[in-house]
Amino acid sequence: MSTPEQVAATRPTGGDEAIGSPRPTRGLRSDALRRLRRNPMAVVGFTLILIFVGVAVFAPWIAPYSPKDNSWLSEVRPGAYPGPSAEHWLGIDPLGRDVFSRLVYGARQSLLIGVVSLAVGATVGVGIGLLAGAFGGWVDTVVMRLVDIMLSVPGLLFAIAIAAMLGQSLTSVMIAIAVVNIPIFARLLRGEMLGQRAADYVLAARSLGISRAGIVFRHVLPNSFTPVIVQGTLTLALAIVEAAGLAFLGLSGSDPSAPEWGRMLTDAQVALTSAPQLALYPGLAIVLAALGFTLLGESLREALDPKLRR
């Protein structure tokens, strides 16, 4: 839920890069890529993401069993869950299912939640931000007041409220997380665009008689998009963590048998004393996946910041 501050993060730096050149970012981008490759944080982050996405995509080939198969129920006793063995690499869960298979399939759900909520949140947010940033004036005022209202409610509470209203399902979790991200993207893009509009090259273009729409779409928007991409990477990470938080509060997909890391972590709290490993696996999975996106996003932000170029 710690996203509003990233908005603030861009506040003092936004707007004064790339002055004068009409296509200022190409040089910056290739330069950024080069610096990204040299940054160990970015490499680690990228590797983690690659593993995460790979596991999610190839889950049926990696997992030895179906995640819902409870054939091993008879081997389970309260508080005594069979540990790792040759057949079950990470042991059996309290309801007689293979933990490893559930963990592998869980990657799919987490990726799905992250990507969908990001796509929805960013698209709507960017649209709103575009509206405000492009038109300015009273449109800007109204839109930004709405954004202020949304931001005045703590993100998680907001998400719980939406999920509670929409009912128990994966869709409502994704919508809840997406809605929380809308004002963040809106404010981010609008702030960037305002900064760009005041930049010298825009003033120059305007004095050359280029139309307002032309300026916005050909110059202002592309140049304002960099922070949105950075924010998007970080939002993916946060969405995975937020989904876990919602699961902890009892708001997640309607089918509890469907493997999902946040839910697995929450369910494991019941047996935390007798089988802490059941909480540790999904906990680590969440941390590593989210860390991958965060590391990459942070490195990206840094690489794209012209002030840090030496």
Partner: peptide, 8 residues
Amino acid sequence: VAAADIEA
């Protein structure tokens, strides 16, 4: 008491 916690 959860069944899993009995021993603890």
